[in-house]
Design a protein around this nucleic acid. Structure first.
Length: 222
DNA sequence: TGCCAGGCCCTCTTTAGGGCCTT
């Protein structure tokens, strides 16, 4: 197959929310996102979001975000419109992406935006690349890989920045171990679904394929 | 009163159950 440029920009994002499920009425209360270009953070987006109701004490304790902070925040329609511009058509990445994807799609649906989103997941990747970790929580992975702790865990921009660092670390480790000259996003997305016992085989074969047919870097496939 | 997430992934599995992850 044809692969895209491994240096294609991506957006890493993280939502803080009022609970676990938009289908149960939960809403986003904070979004953080970073644009990665040339293996570094090139731009940042962050905003609290007023969900239109009071969040629980439990969520205040988890996130450090309280109702007083949210009372002055812009509403979801305003923030999501700005976020849509920031995201553009770039591929997206999150830690446990299924969670952020369902809130992204839910919040966009409220402003009439529905389209497929192309997500990669650092949780699924880390389970395959770092199977011996004590667990695969974002905080554990950041500390075990000695990556910088940029602020408080469970705040959206800090989590997005640290997820971005983890994403780049995973790419660097794959490139080193399997002799990739850059790892295209589609390869990482495929890797998220490769059975654990076949990860090595998949990466060896893909690296060989890329060496015989390098990615097209003249234009985006997205 | 009792209900209250969902996808991934392992195993004592596949006619299922439970821990891990996200807030």
């Amino acid at each position: 197959m044809n692969y895209s440029d491994p240096n294609e920009p991506i957006v890493v994002l993280d939502f803080e929310t009022s609970g676990m499920s938009p289908l149960q009425g939960d809403r986003a209360i904070e979004i953080g996102a970073v644009l990665i270009r040339d293996q570094q953070i090139a731009d940042r987006f962050q905003s609290l979001i007023n969900p239109g109701f009071l969040i629980t004490r439990e969520i205040e304790m988890v996130t450090g975000i309280n109702n007083s902070m949210l009372s002055d925040a812009p509403d979801a329609a305003t923030v999501m419109t700005d976020l849509s511009r920031f995201i553009g058509s770039y591929p997206l990445v999150a830690h446990n992406a299924s969670f952020d994807q369902k809130f992204l799609e839910s919040e966009f649906s409220f402003i009439g935006k529905t389209r497929p989103y192309n997500f990669g997941c650092t949780l699924l990747l880390s389970r395959r690349i770092y199977p011996d970790m004590p667990n695969h929580k974002l905080e554990t992975l950041i500390r075990m890989k000695a990556l910088p702790v940029n602020g408080k865990f469970h705040r959206a921009l800090a989590d997005a920045e640290m997820t971005a660092a983890l994403w780049l670390k995973i790419i660097a480790d794959i490139a080193t171990e399997y002799n990739f000259d850059g790892v295209p996003f589609e390869v990482l997305k495929k890797l998220c679904k490769v059975p654990h016992e076949k990860v090595g085989e998949f990466l060896k074969e893909t690296a060989e394929e890329l060496r015989s047919a390098p990615p097209d870097t003249t234009g985006s496939l997205f």
